[in-house]
Design a protein around this nucleic acid. Structure first.
Lengths: 216, 216, 216, 216
DNA sequence: AATGAATGAGAGTTCATTCAT
DNA sequence: TATGAATGAACTCTCATTCAT
């Protein structure tokens, strides 16, 4: 409708592919996040990336390729800590706090919320990516976490509960917080996420602490 | 790309406004859910509703009006039970089960998932609706639930915990289940939602049952 | 480069499909003939046909569909006279004159030259059409003519010669005349075609007349 | 649509101008022949010539310049034999065979067919070239041949006929054969051209041989 | 001379929307 | 109310051409 980005009429600047590639992806994510995949315009992405519309096509074969690159990168996170439970040296509170903080930092960070929204809204365009991510990242990760929880229970480090049986419950509050931010997109939601984060810590402590440690 | 709905060349049929209206909204929701708001085409919505593209404009002023009507209806749920905690006659297990079942039925039903996706993906188009819903439905509802929980704690019916302090935690698992369905859109996710539902019940029972009742 | 057709900003006029279809095809042929298939613009075709660019798409699915319709129609001529040799009542001169005149009228008429040019320049785009035409029209026609010639020879009506053995030789001069017009596209070529036409008549008479009638 | 030439990622090779020039023109002719002038892409021409798109511009000022160079070269044939009639030493059969063979070799050779197609399809882009060729090559050549024929008649070497009066008739079969190849672009057409060639020889012999020699 | 990156100027096509019937 | 034809306003993508290296 109205102008959405500054024109920024530059003179032809030639950059190395890695640099331009990054600029373009950043711009694409920003535009996709702001307007959604379909409503985002190549023109705007280009301007935001500092080159001309056609210039993008020297690096990506089209709009959908941008989506693929974006989701592909986002859905391929680097190695994750899989030993968090044992990392705290027996201090469950520290372990839980570190775990929850890291979880919320990862799920509720604005740029992650943006990618998640993309995945929800436009994931249907790249079902292969979604499937691949599910099979190689999502499910293995859950399975590994589940195993850790059970191991913790077996070793008496954790109290058995619905949570140790269904690891997704651990993630649910963070996901909820992210969704609220997606829907409302404002400061209040960001603050609500912080509240959720603290509550999550208490929840996990309540549930995971062995009997003796459960009392406040 | 390919044909997305059957041609179904009908002869001009004149239906009662309410009937047509419903057909159109159903068709719109189906198309929006399948392709997203922007990628959905009036042509396809019309065909699915059994009339011509132009015919829709006799009932709705445009595409965005369809979105408004859809979200408006979805975001104005009928009266909800606000006294669920006291409904069970002291049987917490029954209360929790009823609550959770109703929650999942409402959040994880396919058509609700569709609307939620719409809200996430296209909510930015109708911020007024979203704001209105938040202020008149969402927040009051949460506040009421929060009050109920606190009241339950005060009466010794519920054990105080992170959950009774942050009511959103109660909803998080159901939301999580809905999101998983949104992202993966398959049968497996639907089944995972059922598992989550049972786990949720255990979780709530664990957390809400007063000390004496906590042991299984 | 410069404006190629008059804008003619009309008010929305609604015509019956057959009418519009014809207008569009006429316009397309004119534009294709003038600029070639690739250089022709949908915009110009539309304006020439008296509607908007998008309006064409209500009748044809795209530019290539116009080419198909055009060549398809051109390559499906109505029934041809296959008995021309016997039609003259034994007067070979009359027969030959009628045959040649008809041949040149068909091959050297401006609109036919236009379609032929299209077929040569853009035929590669619709190989199926070209093949179909070759198999159902072109080759059967040649074979039929060849048979007629041989029959004429057998009956003593025609003198055997290279021409009665290779019927394409009969057509060659007319094709040549058409090609010259294609290349030069001017009045002089059109006149040269007339000269060729007369010479063709003499040639055929010379070659086809039985011995006794061969003398001038 | 699909890749049309092999990528062939070469390393910067510097060649002598004449060599590059020839490579480029060959590549251009091949691409123009295959796709037509407009649909041919500089990118593909460059790849085929073994350099980059931009590299072509070091040798030719643009796409149209390629066309000019190609047609210019093709339309400026080296000196032709203008004394063919007398070359055979009185043996008309040998003369005719040599003449026809040379004619078909020149008109029906694949690369010549390619140029002819270009001239027909894209000649309108370089009318000056076409005009120049017509005036300095085409018409003088025809006039010279016409004169030769008349001289042959005057000397009693040739029998007067439509053919000696209209020299274009001599070329028509070869042109026809070339056109058929242009339209169908396959092996069968190439073979048909060979048949036409033999028939042409017979035709010319029939028509040109003085009375006494006409009998087979 | 040669190139990869960049660009401007379209072109075809799509689609929400309107209009005459 | 309903429609098929028509339209204007994009939008994606292409491509000949240029430029900095």
């Amino acid at each position: 409708m109205e102008d959405r980005v500054t024109p920024a009429a530059r003179k032809r600047v030639r950059l190395k592919p890695e640099v331009r590639t990054r600029q373009i992806l950043d711009a694409a994510l920003a535009e996709f996040a702001q307007h959604g995949f379909d409503a985002a315009r190549m023109e705007d992405i280009a301007r935001r990336a500092g080159l001309s519309k056609a210039g993008i096509y020297a690096h990506y074969s089209g709009k959908e390729a941008l989506l693929e690159a974006l989701l592909g990168a986002a859905l391929t996170p680097s190695a994750e800590p899989r030993d968090w439970l044992l990392a705290g040296g027996g201090n469950l509170r520290a372990v839980v706090e570190a775990f929850v903080d890291q979880l919320y930092d990862r799920l509720a960070a604005p740029e992650v919320v943006a990618v998640m929204r993309l995945a929800i809204a436009a994931g249907g365009r790249v079902p292969h990516l979604v499937q691949h991510w599910r099979e190689t990242i999502f499910q293995p990760h859950l399975a590994a976490q589940q195993a850790i929880l059970r191991e913790g229970v077996a070793q008496g480090l954790l109290r058995p509960s619905a949570l140790t049986e269904e690891v997704s419950l651990m993630y649910a509050p963070a996901v909820h917080a992210a969704i609220v931010q997606m829907v409302f997109q404002d400061e209040a939601s960001r603050e609500a996420a912080l509240a959720m984060r603290q509550a999550s810590k208490r929840l996990l402590l309540d549930l995971l602490a062995p009997e003796a440690a459960a009392a406040p």
